[in-house]
């Protein structure tokens, strides 16, 4: 039984190692132009991202991403609370929101270029505009669906409206708010990258496309890998925050089981 467990752990550690080794061997022996040897990519990665281009490309990208995402979060939660509380407004707005959410986000890229140009604020606005809907809908459903006993408990203790919002309603809706944010996060990353590819003078997306145009393949791959790592880390960070904030939720669920 414990032999089996060791085997499972070994499998979990060994497969990525073996896969990397296989890629290294393959890229070295195949000598394909498009897939340069792994160590060349590694060198390019160290050269570009440790830390020569961090200030010029990585930080602008991250700034746009976070600014857009946080704007969406603030707006989405605020509007979501409003719509969650006011039923007639919700009924009016729901079809419009559902439609806007269904628009494939990249379709809005040309629109922001026309309306707002290609500078950072345009990209931030685009990210925020796309990311706001899932968060808004999540918050709205969460607030509208709050258990009446929870709300009445708040009322019966004469808790002031603001405190009730922050201590009762938002925490109660937080699982849905986070679900909305989880949907939005990958959209934010996608939009950051493509908006930098289409019209920009800096950023990781710009760098990757530039490297491709100049056929600097190791540079291009190093950028792709950096985007992968960023995606992974952002996801991890989000899960950590979500895990902390929603700890009560999991606890309560396990108890009712």
């Amino acid at each position: 039984m414990s032999g089996r467990r060791i085997g499972l752990v070994a499998a979990e550690i060994l497969t990525p190692v073996l896969l990397l080794a296989a890629i290294a061997i393959w890229t070295n022996t195949a000598s394909s132009f498009y897939f340069p040897p792994l160590q060349e990519i590694g060198e390019a990665f160290a050269e570009n991202w440790l830390f020569a281009r961090v200030a010029s490309d990585v930080l602008p990208s991250l700034f746009r991403l976070l600014a857009g995402f946080l704007t969406a979060a603030v707006l989405g939660v605020a509007l979501g609370v409003l719509l969650g509380r006011v039923a007639w407004l919700r009924r009016q707005a729901s079809p419009v929101i559902e439609f806007l959410r269904a628009v494939p986000p990249p379709a809005l890229l040309p629109f922001t270029i026309i309306a707002l140009g290609v500078e950072s604020p345009a990209k931030i606005a685009l990210i925020a505009f796309v990311c706001v809907w899932p968060i808004l809908l999540g918050t709205m459903d969460g607030i509208a669906g709050i258990d009446l006993t929870q709300r009445d408990t708040g009322r019966s203790f004469q808790i002031r409206a603001m405190r009730s919002l922050f201590r009762v309603e938002l925490p109660a809706a937080s699982p849905q708010i986070f679900a909305g944010m989880r949907t939005s996060l990958p959209l934010a990353i996608i939009l950051m990258v493509i908006s930098e590819m289409v019209g920009a003078t800096d950023g990781i997306g710009y760098f990757v496309v530039q490297s491709q145009r100049t056929f600097a393949l190791p540079d291009m791959w190093s950028g792709i890998i950096l985007l992968g790592i960023l995606g992974y880390l952002l996801n991890l960070l989000f899960s950590l925050i979500e895990g902390r904030v929603l700890a009560w939720h999991r606890g309560a669920r396990e108890q009712t089981r």
Binding site: M197, M220, I224
Partner: peptide
């Protein structure tokens, strides 16, 4: 999974 597929556009 979290690797943004748009990163592959240059490729």
């Amino acid at each position: 999974r979290p690797v943004p597929s748009v990163a592959l556009i240059p490729l």
